[in-house]
Design a binder for these strands. Structure first.
Length: 506
DNA sequence: GGCGTAGTTGAACTC
DNA sequence: AGAGTTCAACTACGC
């Protein structure tokens, strides 16, 4: 078989552990790598400037790596449905390869393109490499539906054995005898500038996390050399508000597939093998990869997974519409410095710690503002470098006690939670400079500072920094009661519907 | 991977 | 030496 092949990059922006890429190139006479940039997305998708920059860095790095092998990346502008027929024709394509994507939007897109390819008598080769397992296998092993809990998912995965070993990185040997085409044949195919993506220099802060496979592997190496740290890692014990991240920040690289989850998994297990004592799921680093697997699997199998209505696993809760509260939360103006500092970090840097996500998510939903988790999901979707459709929806449902997690009376305190790991409030001082000189005594609740203190440190509450938009101690109690009522109502509804079914059967 | 309160335990410290 | 004090660290409970 000697194909003229396009490998279509979407996620999986890497040359290591990329089976579809490898298999495709091995049976090809001519080979090209393509990333399709849909202008519709540039105009309409909620992608913040930080993530556009991260993505472009990923593409640049990929192009550089391909250059070293004598190849290149073609970034083609247009809707895939319109672009591919042109590319198929112009380049006389006979094979299209890409990585399996389980998100509903992607599944539909890929089905359309697969049908299109078949019309052109083009072979389509898809391989699983974004996840540890083929999520379809997990569902099959679980009896045809996705595991409902993390524990259940662990059991099913253990029955499937260890995830496959990573595939070797694409090398010069793999492409020997294969013609690597460099000519774009009239298509615009270079890496877009930020300008083309409507990203203004002014919208960008200093880049803390550079996108791309090279950076991903460097970062992985850096953390994997700290063997004791890896073995002792327990996620809940890491700090949400340390000035330097207390976790690996590999999530953006996993999201785009700059780093293979399987590569990460097997590196971890090498370390675990050499160290008898090590932490385990759900709190270990390996456990974090399993969380990703769990949410991806449930997300692939649940209708309307990113919505409340029509989502069979999501509790129906009568959230409020409150534009004013939502805007305050989005822009770090709730009057609770711990919450606001996290939201500023999110917007500025594109990454916040897992427990910081807990704190602000609880605050927006069941804890304080009583606003739907879907609104929070949209904000995270825009601002997080690691925004992942399944993990984002799954974790928002978790935190709002809409699914997976049900202990709605466990409410994070926007005052007490941060104090445990940052008594002096250094994190707050960094992201809310207006409070920089406030005494530690008042830094988490500045409205309690006497006016003289506010004047002395040049921050009048209500003028230079907002008064708290809600009284946490009051709304917490009200919201717990509302949750109790919603739970009771959902229970009723659930008892109603199966009965009806039974009656019908009888 | 909640928090505030209340109660217990035991080590370290004081005089 | 030994009784009294302090305090971190723990459990238990309700929301």
């Amino acid at each position: 078989m000697s194909h003229n092949t396009i490998h279509w990059f979407r996620k999986g922006l890497r040359l290591h552990d990329n089976l579809a890429l490898l298999e495709g190139i091995r049976n090809s006479a001519e080979w090209r790598a393509v990333f399709v940039l849909d202008p519709w997305f540039v105009q309409n998708a909620k992608v913040g400037p930080n993530r556009w920059r991260f993505l472009m860095q990923c593409l640049e790095d990929l192009n550089n790596s391909l250059n070293k092998l004598g190849s290149r990346l073609f970034v083609i502008r247009g809707n895939p449905n319109e672009v591919f027929p042109k590319l198929f024709k112009k380049w006389e394509i006979t094979q299209l390869t890409f990585e399996v994507d389980t998100e509903p939007y992607a599944k539909q897109r890929d089905q359309t393109i697969t049908d299109l390819a078949k019309k052109h008598q083009i072979d389509v080769l898809q391989r699983v490499s974004h996840t540890l397992y083929d999520t379809k296998q997990i569902i099959k092993k679980n009896g045809g539906s996705a595991p409902g809990t993390y524990q259940r998912c662990l059991t099913v995965m253990s029955q499937l054995g260890a995830p496959p070993q990573p595939e070797p990185t694409l090398s010069k040997d793999d492409i020997k005898g294969c013609k690597l085409c460099m000519d774009a044949c009239g298509f615009t195919a270079d890496i877009p500038t930020l300008e083309e993506l409507n990203v203004k220099e002014n919208d960008l802060e200093t880049c803390l996390y550079v996108g791309g496979e090279s950076e991903a592997l460097k970062r992985l190496d850096k953390y994997m050399t700290r063997q004791q740290w890896v073995c002792n890692f327990e996620k809940p014990k890491t700090e949400p508000n340390s000035i330097n991240p207390s976790t690996t920040v590999l999530s953006p690289y996993l999201k785009f597939g700059c780093l293979s989850a399987r590569t990460f998994y097997h590196r971890l297990n090498e370390i675990y093998r050499h160290n008898k004592k090590h932490s385990g799921p759900p709190v270990s680093l390996e456990g974090q990869l399993y969380w990703r697997e769990f949410f991806t699997t449930v997300g692939s199998d649940t209708p309307n997974f990113d919505k409340m209505v029509g989502n069979p696993i999501c509790r129906q809760i009568p959230w409020d519409d409150n534009t004013q509260f939502l805007e305050a939360w989005k822009h770090g103006k709730t009057g609770y410095p711990f919450i606001d500092a996290i939201m500023v970090q999110l917007r500025r840097e594109g990454w916040i710690h897992h427990l910081a996500r807990h704190a602000v998510a609880c605050f927006l939903t069941r804890g304080d503002l009583w606003i739907s988790w879907e609104e929070g999901q949209k904000v995270f979707e825009e601002l997080l470098l690691d925004a992942d459709w399944s993990l984002n929806a799954g974790n928002w449902m978790w935190l709002s006690a809409s699914a997976f997690f049900h202990q709605y009376f466990r409410v994070y305190s926007p005052v007490a939670f941060g104090k445990k790991t940052d008594k002096n409030g250094d994190f707050i001082r960094k992201y809310l400079p207006v409070l920089q000189n406030f005494p530690a005594q008042y830094i988490y609740e500045p409205w309690k500072a006497p006016l003289k203190v506010q004047e002395k440190f040049k921050c009048i509450i209500g003028k230079d920094y907002p008064k708290p938009i809600v009284d946490h101690d009051v709304v917490r109690q009200l919201n717990i009661k509302k949750m109790a009522a919603a739970y009771a109502k959902n229970k009723e509804a659930k008892e109603e519907s199966p009965k009806k079914k039974k009656q019908k059967v009888k």
